[in-house]
Amino acid sequence: MSGIAAERIDRLASLAAAAARDGEDERAREYVRLARRIAERNRLRLPRELVRFTCDDCDAYLIPGRNARTRLRDGHVVTTCDCGNQARHPYR
């Protein structure tokens, strides 16, 4: 079962990215919500791409420069969504 769910999550992640690039923010948001629901139901981790490029508060697919600000700090990347939510991810 988890193989099918993982494939569906990957497909929804690519659809969300494409919708966000085309300016269809609400459609991208729905794809992200659906992918998160499937991952929770099947106890799967979200792909790193989906974790790094989605807002935890408003489920927006983040595109730096359009609806997100990305800054480098000491040892981590800070991504700020238009809604004000910040996400920090380490880097080397």
Results as ranks from 00 to 15, higher is better:
residue 26 E to N: 12
residue 31 Y to G: 07
residue 19 A to P: 04
residue 68 A to T: 03
residue 54 T to G: 07
residue 28 A to P: 14
residue 73 R to I: 04
residue 54 T to K: 13
residue 44 L to D: 02
residue 26 E to D: 12
residue 37 R to E: 15
residue 63 I to K: 02
residue 6 A to F: 14
residue 12 L to I: 07
residue 42 N to D: 15
residue 86 Q to T: 02
residue 77 V to M: 15
residue 21 R to E: 13
residue 27 R to A: 08
residue 74 D to R: 15
residue 60 A to D: 08
residue 60 A to Y: 01
residue 78 V to P: 05
residue 39 A to R: 05
residue 50 L to Q: 06
residue 58 C to H: 12
residue 85 N to W: 12
residue 14 S to K: 11
residue 42 N to M: 09
residue 56 D to T: 13
residue 76 H to Y: 02
residue 49 E to K: 14
residue 60 A to N: 04
residue 56 D to Y: 06
residue 19 A to L: 03
residue 19 A to D: 11
residue 52 R to P: 04
residue 11 R to C: 03
residue 55 C to V: 13
residue 53 F to E: 14
residue 63 I to H: 11
residue 27 R to L: 08
residue 10 D to R: 09
residue 10 D to S: 13
residue 8 R to W: 00
residue 67 N to L: 14
residue 46 L to R: 06
residue 31 Y to T: 00
residue 36 R to M: 06
residue 53 F to T: 03
residue 49 E to T: 04
residue 78 V to D: 06
residue 89 H to W: 10
residue 7 E to Q: 08
residue 84 G to I: 15
residue 41 R to H: 07
residue 60 A to L: 12
residue 26 E to T: 10
residue 49 E to H: 10
residue 69 R to H: 11
residue 39 A to K: 02
residue 77 V to C: 13
residue 90 P to M: 12
residue 81 C to Q: 05
residue 52 R to W: 01
residue 68 A to F: 06
residue 87 A to K: 14
residue 70 T to K: 15
residue 83 C to P: 12
residue 24 E to Q: 13
residue 16 A to S: 10
residue 23 G to K: 01
residue 5 A to R: 00
residue 65 G to S: 09
residue 32 V to N: 11
